[in-house]
């Protein structure tokens, strides 16, 4: 039995908690989470998703170690307690026992930490400085939830299609993307440019991986950076099933129907047809060439050019 084959997806009612975290203030943000969880419960949601670094705010810089949480910390325990009767996805700074700091997202259920994703691609270009403050994560794992198999990515991870692809190959039904995405102005006919870009990105990702995709972005300002919100949920056909208006804090509710996933995978059996072995062979060949590893040889042309299949 392959990964995720043990449980089929079930209908899920998901709350998109588009909040405005308070920079560097764990206590205030815990209260903010508690209040949104209450609202989500009232709206009948079984899962509530918060943005990237929802417990701390984004522009932390040297505050990273001050707001970092270790497994078993009081704040993480309080956050976990919120997940009774409703699953909670929240962003925080994780400190490992070796004192590495990660931009992390936890999936919490019934008071327990089910999964932690450490942001793999910490952007360090343009206005981003995350590589100065965070270690990169080095795993991408899907995991089982009561709604089916889920995968979590953080913001920039989603710009690398390999991340969603790797999660999908592990049976992911629902992709959760937590984000703190700054806006870069608004254009006529486009609206807030970053919101429009993310909508395209989510729709393409959901279609390519035939999964639901839930994107939650924060709002508010830090040092003049404006976070645009525009959270949305997309079905595996790339259709937007729920969206939250840009710029303001709000709670969106999306219903993800398992039957839609079944039909999408029937219409587009991309996951069935994916040739893992081909990808593995080609990636391995490229890796050997790129890093000049033993066995790289003089390969690089077409299979025909090398006289047929690899041996």
């Amino acid at each position: 039995m392959g990964p995720g084959e043990g449980c089929a997806m079930r209908d899920a009612r998901v709350a998109l908690a588009q909040i405005e975290p308070k920079l560097g203030d764990l206590e205030a943000n815990l209260d903010l989470h508690a209040s949104a969880v209450r609202d989500a419960r009232r709206a009948g949601a079984g899962l509530v998703v918060f943005p990237e670094l929802s417990m701390t705010g984004y522009l932390l810089r040297d505050q990273v170690p001050e707001v970092a949480l270790r497994p078993g910390s009081r704040e993480l325990a309080r956050l976990a307690r919120l997940s009774r009767g409703i699953d909670v996805v929240a962003g925080f700074v994780e400190e490992t026992p070796r004192h590495l700091y990660h931009n992390a997202v936890a999936y919490l259920s019934e008071g327990r930490v089910v999964h932690v994703h450490r942001k793999v691609y910490v952007p360090t270009y343009g206005l981003f400085e995350e590589g100065r403050d965070f270690a990169s994560g080095d795993t991408l794992r899907s995991f089982d939830t009561r709604f089916g198999r889920a995968g979590v990515l953080v913001c920039e991870d989603c710009w690398h299609p390999s991340c969603a692809w790797i999660l999908a190959q592990q049976g992911m039904d629902v992709l959760i993307v937590a984000s703190s995405g700054p806006t870069r102005g608004a254009r006529p006919g486009v609206g807030i440019t970053s919101v429009a870009v993310w909508r395209d990105l989510l729709r393409a990702t959901a279609r390519f991986q035939t999964c639901f995709a839930v994107y939650v972005n924060r709002v508010g300002y830090e040092d003049g950076l404006n976070f645009g919100g525009g959270s949305l949920a997309v079905d595996p056909f790339g259709r937007v099933v729920a969206s939250v208006p840009a710029l303001e804090p709000a709670l969106g509710i999306a219903t993800l129907e398992a039957e839609v996933l079944r039909r999408a995978r029937l219409s587009y059996p991309l996951l069935r047809d994916e040739n893992l072995d081909l990808v593995h062979r080609e990636v391995e060949r490229i890796r050997r060439l790129r890093y000049d590893l033993p066995g790289a040889g003089k390969e690089g042309g077409t299979a025909a050019g090398r006289g047929g299949r690899d041996r």
């Binding site: 608004a186 006919g189 486009v190 807030i192 300002y221 404006n226 710029l247």
Partner: peptide
Amino acid sequence: LSLDRDLTTRILTGF
């Protein structure tokens, strides 16, 4: 140099 005037106004007043 085009601007969505409404949204730009909202971003700036929010700021």
